[in-house]
Design a binder for these strands. Structure first.
Lengths: 184, 184
DNA sequence: ACATATGTAGACCAATCGGTCCAATGAGGC
DNA sequence: GCCTCATTGGACCGATTGGTCTACATATGT
C-alpha cells in the first residue's frame, strides 16, 4: 500500500468507527484491524497518536459534509430552496445504509474537552460550515445572511441528532418541510 | 450513607462525568472515586453495571431538564414567549459554572448504538421532551402545536451542541432572539 | 552493487477497563 | 444477646487500552 493510501485509509476507517461508537468508544486496535494495518503505520503517519488521527478525521469528514451541502445549494434559486435540498440530500445520504450514522464531527466533540487538538478541529469545521452557508445566503440575496446561515446550521445539527437517536431520516425530511412552510 | 442516598449519588456523579467526557470516556473507577463509594455498592444498586447506571442517569437528567423547561413556560402567555424564556433559562443555567456542559442525554447517545438499555432511555427522554413542549403549545393555543414543539426541540438541541462546542452561551441566547424576531 | 530513506510489521509495556466475588459491617426485629 | 438481611468495602480477574520500540521490507539514487 502506498503512503498516501495508508493515511487516507486510516482517516476514513477511524471516522467511520467514531461515528458509530464515539471517539472514546473505539480502540486503536479496532481501527487498525478494520484498516488492515499495523500499529507502526499509524504512529508513522500520525506521531501524535489517537488525538491527531481523530483531528485529521474530523477535518476530512467536515470537508466532505460541507461539499455535500454546497452541492445541494448549487441549483437553488432561493436560500430556502437550497436549505430544503440540503436537508433532503443529507437525509438520503444517511439512509443509504441500514443504520443512520451520527454526524462525524459531533461524534468526536465530547472527547474534545480534554484534547485541545480535537477542540480546535471541531471549532474550525463548525465555523467553516456556517461561513459556507452564509456565502450561499449572500449569493441568494437573503436578508441577514449571517443570521439565516447560523439558524440553518443549528437546525441541521438538531435534526441530525434526532435522526440518529430515532434511527430515522424523518427528522431531516420534516425539517425540510418546515423550512418550506416557513415555520419559525 | 443510607441506601437511597447511595443510589442518587451514583446517578448524579455518573451524569456529571458523562457530560464532560461521554459514556465511554468515563471509567467506573473514576465514578466511584468521585462518589466516594466502593464497587460493591454500584453492583448492588445497579446489577446491570455501567449500562444500567447510565440509563438511570439519562432518565434522571432528562427529567431534570424537562422540569427546567416547564418552569420556563409557566409564566408565558405565548408559545414564542415560553420558548424564549426556555432558551435563556437554559443558557443561564449552563453559564453558572465556568465550563459549558453538554446535554446529558446527548453525552450518552453515541454509546447507545450497541447498548439497547441506553437506546431506550434516550428515546424515552426525547419523546417526553417533545410531548411536554407540545402540551405547552396546546395550552398556549399555538396553531399546529406538535410541529411547533418538534421544531423547538430540534433548535434547542442544535443550539446546545453549538454552545458546547464554542464554550459559550451565545448560541442559546441567539436562538432566543431569533424566536423573538420570528426568523424561520 | 551498495547506501539511504520511507514505511510496514508486530512484539511488548504499564495502566486501566468492566465485572465478579466474598468477607465485613451495621441496623432492626425478636 | 442474638440472629438476619441489606449494604458496603475492596481484593482480584482476564481483556483491552494507548503508546513505544526495534527489526524488517522495499524503493530510489548513485
Amino acid at each position: 500500500m502506498t503512503a498516501p493510501d495508508t493515511r487516507i485509509t486510516l482517516i476514513k476507517t477511524a471516522s467511520r468507527l467514531f461515528r458509530r461508537k464515539g471517539y472514546s468508544g473505539v480502540g486503536l486496535t479496532e481501527i487498525l484491524t478494520e484498516a488492515g494495518l499495523p500499529k507502526g503505520s499509524l504512529y508513522y503517519h500520525f506521531p501524535g497518536g489517537k488525538p491527531e488521527l481523530a483531528a485529521a478525521a474530523t477535518r476530512w469528514a467536515g470537508a466532505w459534509i460541507e461539499a455535500l451541502v454546497q452541492r445541494s445549494f448549487e441549483g437553488a434559486e432561493t436560500f430556502e430552496g437550497g436549505a430544503q435540498a440540503a436537508c433532503r440530500d443529507l437525509a438520503d445520504t444517511l439512509a443509504q445504509v441500514d443504520h443512520i450514522e451520527a454526524c462525524p464531527v459531533l461524534s468526536v466533540l465530547q472527547a474534545a474537552s480534554d484534547t485541545p487538538l480535537l477542540q480546535e478541529a471541531v471549532q474550525e469545521v463548525y465555523t467553516s460550515w456556517t461561513e459556507g452557508l452564509a456565502r450561499e445566503a449572500r449569493r441568494l440575496n437573503q436578508t441577514e445572511p449571517d443570521a439565516a446561515a447560523y439558524a440553518l446550521h443549528i437546525r441541521l445539527q438538531g435534526a441530525w441528532v434526532m435522526a440518529y437517536a430515532q434511527q430515522s431520516q424523518q427528522p431531516l425530511l420534516r425539517l425540510a418541510d418546515e423550512i418550506g412552510a416557513g415555520i419559525g
